[in-house]
Design a binder for these strands. Structure first.
Length: 262
DNA sequence: AAGGAAGTCAACCGCTAGGAC
DNA sequence: AGTCCTAGCGGTTGACTTCCT
């Protein structure tokens, strides 16, 4: 296949879009649609390649784009879906109305991935103080997390783990993303239904942890985090430390099992 | 106050699937 | 069947911002 010359060789503009360019693109698409992205910039009078126009429209100018904060639910959904679908950002975006694959990808790489896979990084690893969810709670994160949830007499039993095991293990298990345990589906096969899991209240987690002598998990401080002004104020590192958060992720994974077939 | 490190996110790059011919 | 072309996808980059020392 012969690749089309890049934008610069064609004398086309690259880099950030100006408000004027945005307006031209929006006006043109409102009038004529975007049946042919390659032809669009020429017809609209833009010195951009079609690819750039498409990206700008899809990721920024589209009227149904939802800007601003990702809600707690959206972030839980991203974590859950990523566990099942991997880096299939467009598939994940399809489940989050108004969010683009690019935005979700950025949020994952800049916030969520760190929380899920590197929760034990040193507190000196981040300089930010206002973006709470980018900086895990040191006190709570010093505690190991549960990594296995086992069917037990029609209910669920939380198994303690070694201190080396971390959030990533629990993430893998809860989302069923990897490993021989098979995540939520495995629990279900062992006789624990979604409803039963949903019926588990906080007391269960407390009881389970206390009855297992080898359990080293301590219930995180449930003091609400102070309000912050940044865009992630709805979802904080404290949430990651909270069993309820993982239970939400865990339950959602069961409801979305069909996505793993994609 | 200044410089450097780290975080954020818009935009670009390269590749591929799939439709048209 | 083979080639060309386009849209769309995921990975990466780099400008800008924020924070720390």
């Amino acid at each position: 296949m012969v690749r089309a010359p890049c934008c610069e060789k064609m004398g086309l503009k690259k880099g950030p879009w100006t408000p004027e360019e945005d307006q031209v693109l929006v006006d043109y698409i409102h009038r004529h649609g975007h049946a042919n992205w390659r032809a669009l910039p020429k017809q609209a009078g833009l010195l951009r390649c079609g690819k750039s126009c498409r990206l700008r429209w899809v990721n920024y100018l589209r009227p149904d784009i939802k800007r601003g904060n990702f809600s707690r639910e959206e972030q839980e959904t991203i974590i859950r879906l990523h566990g099942m679908l991997g880096n299939r950002w467009s598939a994940i975006a399809a489940k989050l109305a108004g969010r683009t694959d690019n935005e979700i990808k950025n949020v994952w790489h800049t916030h969520l991935k760190k929380l899920v896979f590197s929760p034990n990084m040193s507190s000196t690893g981040s300089k930010r103080t206002t973006t709470d969810c980018s900086r895990p709670n040191r006190t709570a994160l010093s505690q190991p997390l549960p990594t296995r949830l086992e069917a037990d007499h029609g209910g669920a039993r939380l198994a303690s783990t070694s201190p080396e095991q971390s959030y990533s293990d629990f993430y893998s298990f809860a989302t069923g993303s990897s490993g021989p345990s098979g995540g939520i589906s495995n629990v279900k096969e062992e006789g624990c239904s979604s409803q039963e899991l949903q019926d588990i209240d906080e007391g269960f987690w407390l009881d389970t942890l206390s009855m297992d002598e080898s359990a080293t998990l301590t219930i995180p401080d449930t003091t609400p985090p102070p309000p912050t002004s940044d865009r992630f104020d709805l979802f904080t590192s404290s949430d990651i430390d909270n069993t309820d958060f993982w239970l939400n992720v865990f339950m959602g994974a069961g409801d979305l099992q069909e996505l793993s077939q994609l």
